[in-house]
Simulated assay, not measured.
Amino acid sequence: MAKLVFNGVGDRLFETGVKKGVLYVMGDEGQYEQGVVWNGLTGVTEKPSGAETTNLYADDVKYVVIYGAEEFEATIEAYTYPEEFEQCDGSAVLQEGVNVGQQTRKTFAFCYTTSLGNDTQGQDFGYKIHIIYGCKAKPSEKSYSTINDSPEAVTFSWDVSTVPVPVEGMNPTATVVIDSTRMDKSKLKIIEDKLYGTESAEPTLPLPDEIKTLLQ
């Protein structure tokens, strides 16, 4: 029986950063369209909730605990956003260069990457690709202020709710996380080629069941 070793060399892990954002807008036929780059990301806050407990009692004792459905929400913060996101933020084109607000908000999916680090390789240890499905952006506050001697760029923020997608043999999910340190590099490249595109193929969003098939 091996003795536990705490804080071993290479085992001191941490996660940091947010980059390589990609937006996939859902088309009118219910399929996600090709991905577009989302530059200027400054933060993504994932906010799972729900799974509230209900205690049932019988024979004067606690009989069983029932858990409610889990929900997933997020907040996206950025200095800018792709033009394609405007239709997800309640905006529609009235004429070229003229948009109107308070329109129907389109569903979208979104992926971004965080860096994995450790005590030997720093932030170059690996990374995680986070995919969020079935997103709807809620109306959000936008604050503009005068330019002064300490100017700051406007930061946009959107609260996002989700509707889970089916997963064969599992509960529906709104999130998938792909860890580069725990899979074969050739299989990882297959997923990245789908998400980001290649010289000969457009970037498209694989659903969880397709990801599983691609990795078999």
Rank of each mutant, 00 (worst) to 15 (best):
Tyr32Glu: 01
Ala137Arg: 05
Thr107Gly: 00
Ala51Asp: 11
Asp184Trp: 03
Glu96His: 08
Ala201Pro: 02
Ser157Gln: 11
Asn148Lys: 11
Glu71Asp: 10
Met1Val: 07
Leu188Gly: 08
Glu210Gly: 00
Glu29Met: 06
Glu73Phe: 00
Glu15Asn: 13
Cys135Gly: 04
Val98Ala: 10
Gly97Ala: 08
Ala174Tyr: 04
Glu168Gly: 09
Phe125Ile: 00
Gln87Val: 14
Thr80Tyr: 09
Asp59Ser: 15
Gln95Ile: 08
Thr204Ser: 13
Ser115Cys: 12
Phe125Asp: 05
Gln87His: 01
Lys3Gly: 08
Lys19Gly: 02
Ile131Cys: 06
Val64Pro: 00
Lys19His: 12
Val163Cys: 00
Asn171Lys: 15
Asp11Trp: 06
Val9Glu: 09
Val100Tyr: 11
Val18Gln: 11
Asp119Lys: 11
Arg12Met: 09
Thr113Asp: 05
Glu33Asn: 14
Lys212Val: 14
Val98Pro: 01
Ile191Ala: 04
Glu210Thr: 04
Asn55Ala: 15
Ser91Glu: 13
Val98Lys: 13
Glu192Met: 13
Tyr127Cys: 02
Gly40Asp: 11
Glu84Met: 11
Cys88Trp: 05
Gln87Trp: 00
Thr213Ser: 15
Glu86Gly: 06
Ala58Ile: 02
Glu77Thr: 10
Gly122Ile: 05
Gly8Leu: 07
Thr45Ser: 13
Leu205His: 02
Glu202His: 02
Ile132Lys: 11
Phe14Ala: 13
Gly10Phe: 09
Pro172Met: 03
Met183Pro: 09
Gly97Cys: 08
Tyr32Thr: 01
Pro206Tyr: 05
Lys3Asp: 13
Thr75Glu: 15
Ser180Tyr: 03
Ile132Gly: 08
Ser180Asn: 05
Val25Asp: 07
Ser140Glu: 14
Gln102Asp: 14
Lys106Ala: 15
Thr114Gln: 14
Asp159Trp: 00
Asn118Trp: 09
Ile147Ser: 11
Thr113Ala: 03
Lys62Ile: 15
Leu13Lys: 15
Val163Asn: 02
Gly90Tyr: 04
Ser143Ala: 10
Ser157Tyr: 01
Thr181Val: 14
Gly50Cys: 12
Asp209Thr: 10
Gly68Pro: 02
Val177Ala: 08
Ala174Glu: 06
Thr146Phe: 05
Lys189His: 01
Val163His: 00
Ser91Cys: 11
Gln31Glu: 15
Val5Asn: 10
Thr120Glu: 13
Lys187Thr: 05
Lys142Thr: 14
Leu116Val: 12
Gly30Gln: 12
Ala92Asp: 13
Thr107Tyr: 01
Glu84Thr: 12
Cys88Met: 05
Tyr112Trp: 15
Gly21Cys: 03
